[in-house]
Amino acid sequence: MVEKRPALSAAAYAILALGVAIVALPVYVTFVASTQTLDQILEVPMSLVPGTELLANYTAALTSGSERAASAPVGRMMVVSLVVALTVSFGKIVISLLSAFAIVYFRFPLRMFFFWMIFVTLMLPVEVRILPTYEVIADLHLLNTYAGLTVPLIASATATFLFRQFFMTIPDELAEAARIDGASPMRFFWDVVVPLSRTNMAALFVILFIYGWNQYLWPLLITTEESMYTVVIGIRRMIAGGDAATEWNIVMATAMLAMLPPALVVLLMQRWFVKGLVETEK
């Protein structure tokens, strides 16, 4: 904004502050609840001053979970979630990089057909094909396994499409120069395409990690054992038993813990984002 009018600035800040409050307040309440005892939380109105039980609640959540709901320790769930989110994001990136590379740089029969096949699946969310996918995973005896949790989520039309668009901006002469330099297609892929895609990979990783971490419906369907629950499912299980039976302090601590890794990924990768955006030049 070029104009500098105090009233305008004040109004702008007020609106910003309101927006922040709307987003941050629930998180704050969750945090406060996670530092109180169950009795304190059930008081009406609930105190908005942090309590003294922070360490106790988080330790309890991490090591033993909600005992009343007989849940697994949250520590275990975090590990499962982490493995799922990482496998899904890396898997998606690898598969999409390779398929986009094939579609952009190779002439093979039915190339456009396959491209459109991939493109069309963009329009089908996981939920649409969830029953047949479940059937397949069940028949393959992959229920309650990491493979079952991740493999169906890995194929990604969106990421393939994104990489395809990026590859098409790489000048053809680069591939030709590499051919004359004697690089095989896969060598070109490793030495030129992958390094140039670093920024895109970082951006995608952030999005995909959050996507993988927040998966709800699919893990809910195919996990029946406590040990294979993800955090997101874990929270749901903890509040299964009605208001009085729920250990809200533990649930809130778990919610805070569940928010942590995605927030960390965003914070850490943000530096990469900016770096990549500034440096990118072809």
Binding site: E173, E176, A177, D181, G182
Partner: peptide, 20 residues
């Protein structure tokens, strides 16, 4: 014969240097 085995070198209009 593949380009790499033709024993030629090419200079492109847009240089085609590997940016990274």
């Amino acid at each position: 014969v593949e380009p790499k085995d033709r024993n030629i070198a090419m200079v492109f209009q847009n240089y085609a240097l590997y940016p990274h």
